[in-house]
Design a protein around this nucleic acid. Structure first.
Length: 276
DNA sequence: ATCTATGCCTGGTGGC
DNA sequence: TGCCACCAGGCATAGA
């Protein structure tokens, strides 16, 4: 499940491999991934050269000469660099044939990922990008920026942290880890939180995200970033996926509940519903 | 306006 | 062993 740290890892690994390479051809094997017609997609992208890869929240932005390809990996999307089309597996849906005779392929066995194409400079006019809040790892982001939205909401804090319009970058794994560090129960309502608690949550989120970026992200289930490099953050998890295990702080058993329809892991002792 | 429910997908799991 | 219903989950969209 790529969240901000995983997408950042993909960006860093892929960038030196494709910068300066021109797209000479494109094969679209499964076209629901892309939002426009196959013909338009090919017409606009063929002969364009990769100039940079940037990222906003969980979106990858492949910057070419005249267009930006905005890619969201959702749960299982991955990019691979292949030397031959003979290496393609059944879950590789879009193939970019590059000028150095390598193939950049998009792999996604759930087929949930999306690719949008936009004129360079117009990225934030896209519906998907324009509604995103500030990035959780933005050093300029201060709690005052998110506190008002949290304070007036009756939704559980877990749902608010997953809401990308308030703040972007956290997914299910890192929200659980963030709330554990902050010692906040995931079902606590937004309006029940003090400014100091929100401050603590933001600080914890930044800490979790930065550590995950430093370690190359988390490898859970099938998620593995480009080139088969495993992230190492899974060794640092305190609660996520650890149901039945002892809490690293108090030895209480980690439990799993559902919050807003999402599987949620927490320590019932460290993260009490009723606060002091 | 604001929130909840549903659809998109497929591999893995558990029941029979 | 094989079949099948069910689950996971980020985000868009429809519905309440």
């Amino acid at each position: 499940m790529p969240e901000l740290p995983e997408v950042e890892t993909v960006r860093q690994q892929l960038k030196p491999l494709i910068i300066g390479k021109k797209i000479v051809d494109i094969s679209i094997i499964y076209d629901k991934i892309i939002k426009i017609s196959n013909d338009e997609f090919k017409k606009k992208l063929i002969h364009q050269t990769f100039r940079d890869i940037s990222r906003y929240g969980k979106y990858l932005l492949f910057e070419l000469d005249d267009y930006t390809l905005v890619s969201h990996l959702r749960m299982e999307g991955k990019y691979y660099l292949r030397q031959s089309i003979n290496e393609l597996t059944k879950h590789e849906h879009v193939v970019f044939h590059l000028s150095n005779d390598m193939y950049l392929t998009y792999h996604d066995f759930r087929k949930f990922g999306t690719m949008e194409l936009v004129k360079k400079g117009d990225e934030f006019l896209l519906d998907s990008l324009k509604k995103l809040g500030p990035e959780v790892n933005d050093t300029q982001l201060i709690p005052d920026r998110i506190y008002p939205k949290i304070k007036k909401s009756s939704r559980p804090i877990k749902s608010l942290l997953l809401d990308q319009s308030i703040m972007t970058g956290l997914g299910n794994i890192y929200v659980d880890e963030t709330l554990f560090l902050a010692k906040i129960h995931p079902e606590k309502k937004g309006h029940q939180l003090s400014f100091e608690e929100v401050e603590c949550i933001l600080k914890s989120a930044k800490q979790v995200i930065q550590k995950a970026i430093d370690l190359g992200g988390t490898t859970i289930r099938s998620y593995q970033s480009t080139l088969g490099v495993d992230g190492r953050f899974q060794n640092e998890l305190n609660v996520h996926t650890l149901v039945g295990k002892a809490c690293s702080v108090c030895q209480e058993e980690i439990i799993k509940i559902k919050v807003g329809g999402r599987g949620t892991y927490l320590c019932p002792n460290c993260q009490r519903k009723e606060s002091l």
